[in-house]
Design a protein around this nucleic acid. Structure first.
Lengths: 232, 232
DNA sequence: ACCTGAACACCGTTCAAGT
DNA sequence: ACCTGAACACCGTTCAAGT
């Protein structure tokens, strides 16, 4: 019934709001990529002048920040109670990974973000699981940071790849071309890169990403903790 | 004697060259930060018009790429023969870390770089040591990628922090203020971040960074490989 | 071949003026 | 209080014209 009442103010309904602006910004970024977010384009989409947006938002940085935070918040839900810590870490990481897959600009943004809202959300979720893993207080920060930095590193990398592919090329075609380029590198200078070039086209990014997470998890807390030996 | 001959062409000595342009770009980036690199500022420093630069460089992206590559190449020298693989990995990582410390814009650039020259240099160095560590062929790519992504993640983070600090604030003052902000977060939503906030001001970035590297190294290959048990 | 610098097409942001 | 849109101060890049 509140809905019916709304009809009264028919004209000039849809007032500007921070929420609507951020929403439109996300749509623009998704549709047109990182360069697509423009105050003019945004104003047009919201049927106003560019100046109007500044009433609700301090500038482009804040807008980008808010857009990123909205996506990350939706992507990293609290772990369902009873999840094993390792699985919970993987779930958080995958949540971020998939969000970046859907919104490559988020990856670029996370990779250049300081320790504020969007990053802190991820750090918190990872940290809680590190604690649940039984990591001693003194090294929890280090362990959680390692996971965070890895996730954020992959985020930037994926964003860069998405930018590079956007020529409408097929994904495996892109990887195959990259592998070919690697094979042409100087054998003296790039023996390792040349050797692994062949792996490139067969790799599943998601699997590869999770394998990295598992590597760090193993470093943080070895799989099966053997009973403490009877002291030294 | 070649030097004396040079005097002949006194006027209009110092011809433009890709090398000089990249060098000037690096100076500009170091002095004025990421926003300081402008074709106009660069042209002024080189005593030409902006258009002249385009004869030697295709555009700003290539320029930024070349500048980053120059810094990274200098920062990641080949490991001296006989270095233990773990130490060599640490040396590579620290080389990148210190380069970013000296040139924060490099961190931002690496964090958003695809797998081309600058990143490949680092990947190659890390990969060789992964191999030296005895990691089986099939998982070398994964192991080297994990190290690379971590390093690149820290790179982006440090660049962001450098940007945040540039208000001339002292470093520990900056950390103390951040810790204070973390402590004011909602206890329901950010228990972990609040708990570790106190660690922040005491942390040494470099030590913290290396600890993360060690975590991954442990995950890649456990410290002391016990002799293989007599098969299953 | 290489340089010059005005001009073009765009930005983010501001601000007087409106309602 | 909120919106409008012209104007300002910048960009990267191009290009006719020079040497």
């Amino acid at each position: 019934m509140a809905a019916t009442r709304t009809r009264r103010t028919e004209r000039r309904e849809n007032p500007l709001s921070r929420e609507r602006i951020v929403e439109a910004a996300i749509e623009l970024l998704d549709a047109a990529g990182e360069g697509g977010l423009t105050f003019r384009a945004l104003a047009e989409r919201l049927a106003t002048g560019p100046g109007a947006i500044y009433w609700h938002v301090t500038g482009k940085d804040e807008l980008l920040h808010a857009a990123t935070d909205a996506v990350v918040a939706a992507a990293v839900p609290p772990a369902p109670a009873g999840t094993a810590p390792r699985d919970a870490v993987r779930a958080v990481a995958l949540g971020v990974f998939d969000a970046i897959d859907a919104h490559p600009w988020v990856g670029a943004q996370l990779a250049r973000s300081a320790m504020d809202a969007p990053i802190l959300r991820i750090f918190e979720r990872l940290g809680r699981q590190v604690q649940a893993l039984g990591v001693p207080r003194a090294v929890r920060f280090t362990a959680a940071s390692a996971l965070l930095n890895y996730v954020v590193g992959v985020a930037g990398q994926n964003a860069a790849n998405a930018r590079a592919v956007e020529a409408g090329t097929d994904r495996t075609e892109f990887l195959t071309r990259m592998a070919a380029a690697w094979t042409e590198l100087d054998p003296e200078e790039y023996p390792f890169v040349r050797e692994v070039a062949g792996d490139l086209p067969h790799h599943d990014d998601r699997v590869e990403f999770l394998a990295g997470i598992d590597l760090i998890l193993t470093g943080i807390a070895p799989r099966e903790r053997p009973a403490d030996p009877p002291s030294a």
